[in-house]
Design a binder for these strands. Structure first.
Length: 898
RNA sequence: GGGAGUAUAGCUCAGCUGGUUCAGAGCGCCUGCCUUACAAGCAGGAGGUCACUGGUUCGAACCCUGUUACUCCCACCA
């Protein structure tokens, strides 16, 4: 079989992914084995794969594939999130493009469009994940709004309501005027913005004096119902008990005094708009101020002026009715300036809250919403992280987590949308009062109303849906139907899951709340470990975003470098919790590595085998050494995985494959051109290569499967090959495990390697051809210089005719030091004496300096008395070695000078 | 305003309990090589006052003070 000299990922990847699917190798059912469960952080159903997903899912796949090969029953459950705000916004936009206004549709009609949209575009992202090689159990693909999950969410709502953990209340909430819904505190993103600070003049009623108030939002003066100053502020004592007139509006409002005011800010006077600022709202409550809501839900002005309007005021407010809040701001400032009521305008930088999903500027708004009481839930969720029942990687996120949970506020879970789980609360009027019943279905609600209130009339269901996170917090439970059927075989087997891989920005949204739900509904944590990935940035350190256009298309990357190449690129730059500056060039390294492995395969498959030939001692040593080296790296890799240091595990495996196996081992055993290889070495090589593929498989699933299969087929009959192709996969092989290794052999190899490198270096610096054979001798007598076992290998790789011990230095030879042993290469041509002397003198100077620093330590009485014996012994060894080396160098210099 | 983190080679990062893994790795760079697996390659090489400062110690990249610079999170300063 002839193999191309370049590895072609495309054909291979497609072939093996279908093969895995067809053999159902990703599928899991509960059995006797130890479970290893991972639930995917469900991407937005209408989302498209971006680099963050690539990183996140590569890591999950590495862990899942490794666990599977370790004999665990690995189950990676995929799915998507209905993402209510984002998806509804997309559907509304799509409808608008078709000329359909959402408001012209009934709820049912809208939902039909939304489901259609979901069917059409939903799950693209899951298809894309297959290109990456993700070994998810696709048969378990779930959706946060499919019937099982929907019902689970409703049940949990009813249950928490009955436990008194859910309540409805009128609160100041974060209003998204674009999505027309309330959002939770966590969904508000504060962005620095350059705005203006406007200084407005409020006339004191009945006087011609003015008080100046600074504000960033002049349009809200329409809702002003007081002005507030600090009670101890000397500048404003004269205002006590007075009233002032809101500029432009003409409304008379009281001056109140409260310590809340920061005297240093602006003029030390604050205007109070209870309907549109959370602090003002609190002050309004405290002083019984009127609250005037001046905005419509979509952020336009409503023309309201509060109670007892005077005609002039009414007119003033009506002038702005229907204007957008920002247009209104401009207009009001223009009007006030014309009226001479603006003192000054300053540039000002502040943080403005934006909606996470729509990016609209958030408007604080008073409205009736549903909340979850967090106090008790938070306490338990904090405990399990504090006592390390759940481990965070890296651990620093414990601090962030603790801080949030210790300062937690109730969770606003109602959203004024249609796309989502509709809140199962029903209202009805009884004796002029609104009553509420909460139940999983209309029938149940009717029964409750009759039972509790004796009411049998019409019920009206709450129009709102639940926050998306109110369904995703159940994900690890609801995926196994543990809410509807507690204790079922699936939930009992797969829960708790093993590892959660997610980005740190959803630690509050999702991680913390899953822990709460786990504690509340399973009485058990939802996962043992949380691995926080970094955020993928571009190579300039900027976040990837559509606007900047700095986000590469993952699928294009895969086409260019192969899935294995891209996976490796992601992993190499991604230590846990560190942001990774992504540079496409790093995928090239991954692609090159695939190619390197591929070419090693080409080499090995090209070998002729001589079944009769005996294994040379050199080959025997080579095999022995590679075995030891592999055992050593396996130990390292296991340690790295234990600490979730995936980059390091990959790098160690990479070096084992490239440096140790390809550059050293294969070169050691490679037969001369046209010569066959002995069977023992050949089989050992195939075996080592196979194990290497197993080690690399979790990182690079495709190329390793391809190579593994080829290796399996070598020397087999056609029928056997067919059987292998049809029934086997690297995926289900056992991962090699660490074992004891011969440290001494590894050290001897290091010496051999140094000798070979020194000879190669010598050739390079003296312009000697690699083809010219050289003889090497070395000073006998140093215990640590052992080259017997590697002699044949040294000769082969260094193109050396002989390597012998000697008791006196040969004349006319160049020498070099390996440790403290002097080695010689006799030169046929004349040696450049000056150049050699210069080199030797430089070495001597360095050695003497080194000795001096060692002596300084050893002559320090405090050191000799204070340091542990082992450390002192080490220093004495250094001293001896340095002295030997200096003596040798001096002798060499002398010999040259003679 | 509060809290957390980071600073080591041109870049990205290791460096665990202070001492032979002590100044490392990968990439990049430089110099030779198309040597019959691979130029997506081979061989060799150069690169660092461990941010700065003071201290503890026989001994500091590592522990402590302070300074500087970045990053992230939280918070109602209009």
């Amino acid at each position: 079989m002839e193999l191309a000299s370049k590895y072609n990922p495309r054909a291979v990847e497609e072939k093996w992914y279908s093969y895995w699917l067809e053999k159902r190798l990703f599928h899991s059912e509960p059995d006797q084995r130890e479970p290893y469960t991972v639930v995917i952080p469900p991407p937005n159903v209408t989302g498209v794969l971006h680099m963050g997903h690539m990183l996140n899912n590569t890591i999950q796949d590495v862990l899942v594939r490794r666990a599977r090969m370790q004999g665990k029953n690995a189950c990676w459950v995929p799915g998507t999130d209905h993402a209510s705000i984002a998806t509804e916004a997309k559907v509304v936009k799509m409808l608008a493009e078709k000329g359909i206004d959402k408001r012209s549709l009934t709820r049912d009609e809208f939902m039909e469009h939304a489901w259609q949209w979901k069917e059409q575009y939903g799950g693209i992202i899951l298809k894309q994940l297959r290109r990456l090689g993700a070994s998810c159990d696709w048969e378990r693909t779930a959706f946060t709004m499919d019937p099982e999950r929907y019902e689970s969410v409703i049940r949990v709502f009813v249950d928490l309501y009955n436990k008194g953990l859910i309540y409805r209340g009128v609160r100041m909430v974060n209003w998204d005027p674009q999505a027309l819904t309330a959002v939770s505190d966590e969904e508000v993103v504060y962005k620095e913005s350059h705005s203006k600070l406007f200084y407005l003049r409020y006339r004191v009623e009945g006087e011609e004096r003015y008080i100046v108030v600074a504000t960033t939002r002049p349009e809200t003066i329409l809702g002003d119902t007081a002005v507030c100053v600090h009670p101890d502020d000397d500048r404003y004592q004269w205002l006590r008990g007075k009233r002032v007139v809101v500029p432009g509006v003409g409304r008379s409002v009281p001056v109140i005094m409260d310590e809340y005011v920061d005297r240093e800010f602006g003029t030390g006077a604050l205007k109070i708009t209870p309907a549109h600022d959370i602090n003002d709202y609190n002050l309004g409550l405290k002083y019984g101020l009127e609250s005037i809501d001046i905005f419509n839900d979509n952020g336009t002005l409503n023309g309201a002026v509060g109670q007892n309007p005077v005609p002039a005021e009414k007119e003033a407010a009506q002038r702005y009715a229907g204007l957008d809040r920002f247009a209104c701001r401009k207009q009001i400032m223009k009007d006030l300036e014309e009226a001479g009521l603006v003192e000054k305008v300053e540039d000002y930088t502040n943080k403005v809250g934006h909606s996470e999903r729509t990016d609209a500027v958030i408007e604080p708004k008073l409205s009736a919403q549903w909340f979850v009481r967090m106090e008790g839930l938070a306490k338990r969720a904090l405990e399990v992280v504090e006592n390390d029942t759940i481990h965070f990687h890296p651990a620093k996120f414990k601090n962030t987590y603790r801080h949030w949970l210790e300062n937690i506020k109730d969770w606003c879970i109602s959203r004024q949308l249609w796309w989502g789980q509709r809140i199962p609360a029903w209202y009805f009027m009884l004796d002029g009062r609104q009553e509420t019943v909460v139940a999983a279905s209309h029938d149940e609600a009717a029964r409750l109303a009759a039972e509790k209130f004796g009411y049998t009339g019409e019920l009206r269901q709450d129009e709102d849906v639940l926050d998306t996170w109110f369904s995703s917090w159940l994900w690890p439970i609801s995926l196994f139907d543990g809410i509807r059927h507690p204790g079922n075989p699936e939930i009992s087997y797969y829960y708790p899951t093993a590892d959660l891989i997610t980005a740190p920005d959803i630690i509050f949204f999702w991680v913390a709340r899953m822990i709460m739900a786990g504690e509340e509904y399973m009485n058990e944590v939802p996962f043992r470990n949380v691995y926080f990935t970094g955020i993928v940035r571009d190579k300039l350190g900027r976040k990837m975003s559509k606007q900047l256009g700095n986000s590469p298309d993952p699928i294009e990357l895969i086409e260019k470098y192969g899935a294995d190449g891209v996976r490796m690129g992601m992993l190499l730059t991604a230590p846990a919790g560190n942001d990774l500056p992504f540079d496409e060039a790093i995928c090239e390294q991954g692609r090159n590595f695939s190619n390197k492995l591929w070419n090693a395969l080409r080499l090995v498959t090209g070998w002729q085998v001589d079944g009769e030939a005996a294994q040379s001692p050199a080959n025997a040593t080579a095999v022995k050494w590679m075995e030891q080296r592999m055992a050593q790296v396996l130990e390292e890799v296991e340690r790295d995985f234990g600490q979730y240091r995936l980059s390091e595990a990959l790098m160690a495996s990479y070096k084992l494959a490239w440096d140790d196996f390809c550059s050293w081992y294969l070169e050691m055993v490679k037969p001369a051109h046209g010569e066959p290889i002995d069977r023992a070495t050949y089989e050992a090589t195939l075996n080592l290569f196979t194990r290497l593929m197993l080690m690399l498989h979790p990182f690079m699933p495709f190329v390793t499967e391809e190579i593994w299969h080829t290796l399996q087929c070598i020397g087999k009959s056609e029928a056997e090959q067919k059987a292998i192709m049809e029934s086997q996969s690297i995926m289900t092989q056992a991962m090699p495990t660490a074992s004891a290794y011969d440290q001494r052999l590894l050290e001897e190899f290091d010496t051999a390697r140094e000798v070979i490198a020194a000879v190669r270096n010598l050739r390079g610096s003296r312009g000697l051809s690699p083809k010219e054979q050289l003889a090497v001798s070395y000073m006998a007598g140093d215990e640590r210089f052992r080259v017997d076992r590697f002699e044949g290998i040294i000769r082969k790789l260094g193109n050396i005719s002989s390597i012998d011990a000697t008791n006196e230095k040969p004349t006319g030879a160049i020498s070099f030091m390996i440790g403290t042993t002097e080695c010689f290469v006799p030169m046929s041509q004349n040696v450049d004496r000056e150049a050699e002397l210069q080199k030797l003198r430089a070495d001597l100077q360095y050695a003497e300096g080194f000795l001096q620093s060692v002596m300084k330590k050893l002559s320090n009485e405090k050191f000799v008395n204070g340091a542990p014996a082992a450390v002192i012994e080490r220093e004495r060894n250094k001293q001896r070695d340095a002295e030997t080396k200096i003596a040798a160098l001096k002798a060499q210099i002398e010999a040259l000078q003679a």
